[in-house]
């Protein structure tokens, strides 16, 4: 017994003495959005394999969590790059600036589409954003036309819109912590709410109340919080052809043999439509670079160069294989220049 303890103790002492606690970091540290994570990691792996640099470490912390870490300061203990499925907020910029992170390079890398997918066993639904809002909001505009909200009375899609099939409303979606859910609320639910004139006016007058109406999902079982695991949603959709699932386009892309995307406002969620920004539920993806770290942490510039190379983010690149929807050609070359020159974004 004593021997075991001794050996363990020695092992720890050896391990601790082998590397002093606060050494300079020789790998890039990346944090941020779980939507960008698959792309960021793919680039990181390529970068690690084809350059003399170490493979960057990529943490999936969510966009908000990423900015929090990224903006905490300058120095080896803070990440060099953060991924985001939305643009940085003014408040986050402020935090960054307060902590000495004043030079930030913003690189837009492409788009992600939010899809409402369903099993292939049934014909694809044609939804409008208004239908989505009416089907999923906790409080909806009074069907009689009065300018007030009532608890959502709709049970089936047909109740929402007579042209839709007579099946129960059942939508599986991500939990509140997810960036996909934020994007869905913003793009689909707000978009649908704004199709009511009085709600649109309300947005100007009382933004908070509008947000509350548009962003509060039903809690009576029509919207099902299916957890963070999107693969699980795919399985559930297969088992239940009446259900719809909300997730990022890359899942649809990878599981095209099992599920299909519903048309939104008449547009099918395809690679081309999202890239051309025709599909309404799409959002841009970014990464942000801490310029102060360039030159201190080896390989940052090379990593950015790899990410913004045609063989990575181009229409034929390996990120497209992973489901990234590329920027249009012109925007892409503009962004590549920004990245190459490390053009800092304005902080105001």
């Amino acid at each position: 017994m004593k021997k075991i303890i001794c050996v363990l103790g020695m092992a720890v002492v050896l391990g601790l003495s082998q590397a002093p606690a606060a050494t300079a970091r020789d790998y890039i540290s990346i944090v941020g959005s779980s939507t960008v994570y698959p792309f960021s990691t793919t680039v990181a792996e390529h970068f690690g394999k084809t350059t003399p640099f170490k493979t960057p470490k990529v943490e999936s912390t969510g966009s908000g969590g990423g900015f929090k870490l990224f903006c905490a300061g300058v120095g080896v203990q803070h990440p060099d790059i953060t991924n985001a499925s939305r643009a940085i907020k003014p408040s986050e910029k402020q935090t960054c600036a307060q902590n000495g992170v004043r030079e930030i390079v913003q690189v837009k890398i492409g788009y992600d589409g939010i899809v409402l997918a369903q099993s292939k066993k049934v014909p694809a639904m044609h939804l409008s954003r208004r239908d989505i809002f009416l089907a999923l909001a906790k409080e909806v505009p009074d069907p009689s036309g009065a300018e007030k909200t009532v608890p959502n009375p709709y049970k089936t899609w047909k109740d929402v819109n007579p042209q839709l099939p007579d099946v129960k409303i059942e939508v599986l979606g991500p939990p509140p912590t997810s960036g996909t859910r934020d994007a869905f609320l913003e793009l689909a639910m707000q978009g649908g709410a704004k199709s009511f004139k009085w709600l649109k006016e309300l947005k100007k007058k009382d933004k908070k109340l509008f947000k509350k109406i548009a962003h509060t999902l039903r809690e009576d079982g029509a919207y099902i919080d299916a957890g963070e695991n999107d693969n699980l949603i795919v399985q559930k959709l297969e088992a239940n052809p009446n259900a719809l699932g909300i997730f990022g386009f890359s899942y649809l892309d990878q599981n095209a043999d099992k599920i299909q995307g519903a048309f939104v406002d008449g547009v099918e969620p395809t690679f081309e439509n999202i890239s051309a920004q025709k599909y309404p539920l799409s959002r841009p993806l970014f990464f942000y670079v801490k310029k102060a770290h360039v030159g201190t942490i080896p390989g940052i510039q090379e990593y950015i160069a790899e990410f913004t190379s045609e063989k990575a983010w181009g229409p034929e690149g390996y990120l497209a294989d992973k489901g990234l929807i590329p920027l249009p050609d012109e925007e892409r070359s503009k962004m590549r220049e920004v990245a190459r020159k490390l053009e800092v974004m304005p902080m105001e």
Partner: peptide
């Protein structure tokens, strides 16, 4: 504490990622 991360290289000590 940042251990939920994409790490390709095999860690070689107590302070590696």
């Amino acid at each position: 504490v940042g251990m939920v991360a994409f790490i390709v290289d095999i860690p070689r000590g107590f302070t590696d990622a």
